[in-house]
Nucleic acid binder design. Structure first.
Lengths: 196, 196
DNA sequence: CCTACCGATCGGTAGG
DNA sequence: CCTACCGATCGGTAGG
């Protein structure tokens, strides 16, 4: 096994451990010592791989985006009902992966503070999500597939806000909250065509 | 000025300072020393008034509820469209008080963690909000004022989730987000009668 | 209400 | 990648 490969695997272990700890304690609440312990090394050893606490956070966010091949596909899907199906597929995927949702929600909430190291990341993330949704609703509107009086920009904002809010409710009580059904129903209520 | 009065005023100062710091740093991110400094005493002095960090948090949440005479009024309003007007009045009031919304959102997000000292408080808070909304939609449904096929329980969950999600978006970008308009439009879309 | 202190924990560095 | 350490900060206590 080459030294480079070993190093890469070690980094992956550390990132996975960091995601676990961020999920439980947020960024500020987590310590390099706790993350290092779960990756079986000392906190000084961790710093050998990631030069600072912030650099590790950046690596975690970067890998999360890299994993999101779904988002990649989203970018290349032409605006229309198909995009809504893509959104729903992501929600369904999330339903089977509460850990990632939990980590993301935890960090996003913390990063509302302007001086949080992930603030810029999430600002960009949300803007892209909103723009994407707005373009979709606009295309639907031009084809007459959006109910009369529904404004694409407001529909986009409402959709993203609903998605976020539902994740929080779902994380608090997964048994009682039908995240996928609620979003599907909400979208269907905006459309003049069936969503199936 | 009586000693008791002085003590009560001092406590109010400390609680106000705590709300400020919680808003900026959350509960775990804030220190008794910083809160104390803003209330013009030492952190040991603060502990003279509130025996622990958790006791101060409890006092902050308690006072926030006490201030919410609006919620009190909500409890005594019979289910129906009038309750929706009450909800919208709260949203409008919040629009003029970003500080309190910010503090609440920050704490609520942090308290998703089950071992957070405010976890039980927010669980109760959300359950009450959801139950209240569900009873309202149910009453509307029985009078035929809810659109066909709208399920009161799902409408309540969706409404609370949307409200929460919009607050986060609004806090991040107050200029671009029409919180009140979005909620009003969403509600109107569920009804068969005008919301005015 | 303060001064003075405690034990614990933090991110990061030195030096190997 | 570790041991050993630094300066800073934390919540809480003692004792007045």
């Amino acid at each position: 096994m080459s030294g480079y490969l070993k190093g890469r695997l070690r980094r992956e272990d550390i990132i996975a451990a960091a995601m676990d700890v961020y999920r439980e304690a947020g960024y500020h609440g987590s310590s390099l010592r706790e993350i290092a312990k779960r990756a079986n090394l000392t906190h000084a050893g961790l710093i050998y791989y990631f030069p600072s606490k912030e650099a590790l956070l950046a690596a975690v966010l970067e890998r999360r985006d890299a994993e999101d091949t779904e988002r990649e596909k989203l970018d290349t899907t032409p605006p229309g009902v198909e995009v809504l199906h893509h959104f729903l597929a992501i929600v369904e995927h999330n339903t089977r992966n509460p850990g990632v949702v939990d980590m993301y929600t935890r960090l996003a909430a913390e990063a509302v503070a302007v001086d949080h190291p992930a603030h810029a990341y999430f600002e960009r993330h949300y803007r892209m999500a909103r723009d994407n949704a707005e373009a979709t609703f606009r295309a639907l509107s031009e084809r007459g597939e959006l109910r009369t009086g529904v404004d694409p920009a407001m529909a986009a904002l409402t959709f993203i806000a609903l998605w976020d809010g539902l994740q929080v409710q779902w994380l608090t009580n997964q048994a009682e909250v039908d995240m996928l059904g609620s979003i599907r129903t909400h979208l269907q209520n905006l459309l003049t065509v069936p969503l199936d």
